[in-house]
């Protein structure tokens, strides 16, 4: 089996809502070359769970989220949502399925069309899906706006530029929730916000998750934020999965050398790890010509010849902890 394996997938669990297998996304880079953005990643998502996806820029975490939403075209792989294969679907069928999955983007200000009123922005999804207009949808829009903490008569009449970044992100969340989705994919939803506002949004997301019964994929580069919101965490590097584990397990006992380096790089951390400079060296290789075997080997202090020759597959090293490393 190519890629980084399936050991972490919960095949018999009836609660699995979304299952992605061996997803490959490549972008043309000119001159016949391709950027290997996501190379055979598999994830599964149980109902009510939050999966955190962490990694540095170029690891493919954002592309993964966008590909699941079908905003990027995948070269191969399957995306099953409630046992329907989304990958094979096109046009209106896909659209109907996709309604149950919504996405929140990094930059809340640029996510909102500046010309439109908040009410119309939030109602847009209902409009797209037709047959929901009039007083019913008005009431629903008001209710959702109140749920994200934007109560008040005048909110719906105003335009995005009258709101702060944090409030814009609340509008974006309202716009997604009005569709009553089951899965919410959040791409760095708090990275553009100040820390005090970030806390507001994180708390809000936790509340809404309970209230609306949401299942979430939370993509972020910020390890402390991911620790705070996630039940399970997946660490990615250069388009591959390094490690998947329950949140506390990952932070208490990271097993993949890259996970260890990532955690050790957090400034001012008090984890039991050596200096980051002893765990990782150099810079990210080109995603156009990724290293053979284990993609992390060029920066890994533990790398051996085996790492260059054979790609490690995910295996369970402790209960609920899966690592793709020959030496972990």
């Amino acid at each position: 089996m190519a890629g980084t394996g399936h050991a972490h997938l919960r095949l018999d669990d009836p609660n699995i809502l979304l299952r992605v297998r061996d997803l490959v996304v490549e972008f043309p880079a000119g001159k016949g070359q391709v950027v290997h953005a996501v190379s055979g990643v598999s994830i599964d998502l149980a109902r009510g769970e939050t999966l955190g996806v962490v990694g540095e820029s170029g690891c493919g975490k954002t592309t993964l989220g966008r590909a699941v939403m079908r905003l990027e075209d995948a070269q191969s792989g399957t995306i099953e949502f409630r046992d329907h294969d989304l990958f094979g679907l096109g046009g209106s069928e896909l659209a109907v399925k996709r309604r149950d999955m919504q996405m929140i983007f990094q930059d809340p200000v640029s996510s909102l069309n500046p010309r439109r009123r908040v009410r119309d922005l939030v109602r847009e999804g209902l409009e797209i899906w037709g047959n929901e207009s009039g007083p019913f949808s008005d009431a629903r829009v008001e209710a959702i706006l109140a749920a994200v903490g934007l109560a008040g008569e005048s909110v719906g009449e105003r335009r995005p530029h009258e709101f702060s970044g944090g409030q814009c992100q609340r509008i974006c969340i309202a716009r997604a929730l009005v569709m009553d989705p089951e899965v919410l994919i959040l791409d760095e939803p708090v990275s553009a916000l100040d820390v005090s506002v970030q806390a507001q949004i994180l708390n809000l997301l936790e509340d809404l998750k309970v209230e609306f019964g949401l299942t979430m994929v939370f993509v972020s580069h910020d390890l402390a934020v991911v620790r705070n919101v996630s039940d399970r965490v997946m660490v990615m590097y250069l388009g591959k999965v390094c490690e998947v584990a329950n949140t506390e397990r990952l932070f208490d006992a990271p097993a993949h050398p890259y996970s260890r380096a990532l955690l050790a790089s957090i400034p001012g951390h008090e984890l039991n790890l050596p200096d980051a400079s002893t765990l990782i060296s150099g810079e990210l290789p080109s995603p156009i010509e990724p290293p053979s075997g284990c993609r992390f080997r060029t920066r890994c202090p533990m790398a051996t010849e085996e790492c260059a020759e054979r790609e490690p597959e995910l295996r369970e090293v402790a209960v609920g902890q899966f690592v793709a490393c020959h030496h972990a």
């Binding site: 966008r66 939403m69 905003l71 659209a95 996709r98 309604r99 919504q102 996405m103 983007f105 990094q106 930059d107 640029s110 996510s111 909102l112 069309n113 500046p114 010309r115 439109r116 847009e124 999804g125 797209i128 899906w129 974006c172 716009r175 997604a176 569709m179």
Partner: peptide, 26 residues
Amino acid sequence: ERDFVDAARAMGASRSRVVIKELLPL
């Protein structure tokens, strides 16, 4: 390049809807 176009697509808006409702007014 701004996210609101992606956001509309993510909500299920068709490409022609994106052109007519999101881009033309702007």
